[in-house]
């Protein structure tokens, strides 16, 4: 199980971005972390994966535990060794390497190129399109294929917990559905635990069992996927069901009142 307890994070020693975040992800589950732009979702993932240090971020309070061991102040390479991998926002494939070379770098922690090669079958089985394009430069793939590659790289690292940062970003709805369905299969068949960060709450809550809503560095709401889908505020702000032509943003004036209601 992954647990965060009262995590506070600052960037550059001044900007407090996470203001006491607590959440838990049971092994074998898919948990959604929802929130608007700038809420701190990516920061939560970087806190877990150890990538915070590279951005001058620091955990000033709180605990992060995975399978009973603290991940705090652990370098990213060791976090990966423990089976926790972040799939970065914006896909971030190695553009000048081929698809297969990208996957082999994903298998870097397996210790040898031969071991990494032997692991290629798994991502190729889930993403046959990548197999077809194995010799192509990753920079030339479509956005959807790049997202598949980014997830596959994590699979190559033999991860147990995948931290997916907005995999639906900029993709057509049909592709989002395809990719999320594969994530669900990886979860069911490979036992992959997933913490799924999304602004696309609709898609995320369809495959997640549980969800959290993050706003301005705080968890303001959590519940089962059904509960969240049934919640009027989530429906209005994230599912785009606010009524004809009036899809509102979270920065709406009414937000303040609503947040008080959640917190109260």
């Amino acid at each position: 199980m992954l647990t965060l307890d009262g995590v506070e994070v600052v960037y550059n020693r001044v900007a407090l971005v996470l203001k006491g975040v607590s959440l838990r992800v049971e092994e074998g589950s898919i948990v959604a972390l929802l929130g608007a732009n700038g809420a701190g979702k990516s920061t939560v993932l970087k806190t877990i994966s150890g990538l915070l240090a590279a951005e001058r971020g620091e955990v000033v309070r709180g605990e992060v535990n995975w399978q009973g061991k603290s991940l705090l102040r652990m370098p990213a390479s060791q976090v990966v060794e423990r089976g926790v991998v972040q799939v970065l926002e914006g896909r971030r494939v190695f553009e000048h390497l081929t698809v297969e070379q990208n996957l082999l770098v994903g298998g870097y922690r397996r210790g040898s190129l031969r071991a990494a090669r032997q692991a290629l079958d798994v991502p190729y089985a889930y993403f046959p399109r990548l197999k077809e394009r194995r010799a192509q430069r990753a920079g030339l793939l479509s956005g959807g294929e790049q997202q598949m590659l980014a997830i596959s790289r994590a699979v190559m690292s033999n991860c147990k917990l995948a931290l997916l940062d907005e995999p639906s970003l900029g993709l057509a709805p049909m592709l989002v559905e395809e990719i999320f369905e594969i994530v669900q299969r990886l979860n069911a068949d490979e036992g992959l635990t997933v913490l799924l960060v999304e602004q696309n709450a609709d898609a995320a809550l369809r495959i997640a069992q549980h969800g959290y809503v993050l706003e301005d560095g705080r968890i303001v709401l959590d519940g089962t996927a059904e509960e969240l889908r049934a919640n009027q505020d989530v429906a209005e702000f994230y599912l785009g069901l606010a009524g004809v032509g009036s899809r509102r943003s979270f920065r709406d004036v009414k937000t303040y009142r609503r947040r008080k209601r959640w917190l109260g």
């Binding site: 990213a76 990966v80 991998v85 970065l88 971030r92 190695f94 770098v105 994590a154």
Partner: peptide, 8 residues
């Protein structure tokens, strides 16, 4: 950063 995220 992407390399680091994969444990390199």
């Amino acid at each position: 950063i992407a390399s680091q995220s994969l444990g390199v």
